[in-house]
């Protein structure tokens, strides 16, 4: 009898707690996946597909649901990986593929046949042109994803390194390297890190 009473008491209390939690889960219900948005925000948005997903958002969704590792974004490199690992609260994992230096697509216009295939492939609409007209890449919008290279039937798209300009130069971290002055072949004096 005593035991029955104890069981009932405990059960009743548990039922009460269950009801409270059920109400709470209604009140605190969340729509959508806020983690996906946050992960998407730290991705470089090149839409290159090197992670194996068709764009940055699908990859972010996959990471947020935990079905893929945090280190698959190649152009984002270590910084994106660390940021995602930080968001997900998982230990950082080395990015396997080294990111290529930033590149831009260039169309050799005299070879272009105006097929518009590259325009359809570009994920950020950075190629302009019309059928039977030369196409060209808007440099300031090109993410260097290389997705336009494959579809070109005449292989007239080159991926070239982004030209380094003075305005975008920044100081590198102070290292242990010492600077040495030397004379180059062109008769100009250079200072280089040794």
């Amino acid at each position: 009898m005593n035991i029955l009473f104890a069981v009932l008491l405990l059960g009743g209390l548990a039922l009460l707690a269950g009801i409270v939690l059920a109400i709470a889960s209604r009140v605190f219900h969340i729509e959508g996946d806020p983690m996906m948005e946050r992960i998407d925000a730290v991705l470089p948005q090149t839409q290159c597909g090197q992670c194996g997903y068709p764009g940055c958002k699908p990859y972010a969704t996959a990471v947020a649901s935990g079905e893929v590792d945090v280190n698959k974004c190649v152009p984002g490199g270590e910084r994106a990986m660390l940021a995602i690992a930080d968001l997900m609260g998982v230990p950082p994992k080395e990015v396997e593929e080294e990111a290529a230096p930033p590149m831009l697509a260039y169309i050799r216009e005299d070879e272009c046949i105006g097929c518009t295939l590259c325009i359809k492939a570009c994920p950020v609409d950075a190629i302009i042109g019309a059928p039977k007209q030369y196409h060209t890449v808007v440099e300031s919008h090109c993410t260097g994803c290389t997705l336009c290279v494959e579809p070109c039937p005449v292989d007239c798209i080159d991926m070239l390194g982004k030209p380094e300009v003075l305005e975008e130069w920044t100081w590198s971290a102070p290292g242990k390297s010492r600077l040495v002055i030397e004379d180059s072949a062109e008769g100009e004096t250079h200072v280089r890190a040794a």
Partner: peptide, 9 residues
């Protein structure tokens, strides 16, 4: 730039 690309995409 990423924001711009995202908007374009």
């Amino acid at each position: 730039f990423a924001e711009l690309s995202k908007a374009r995409s």
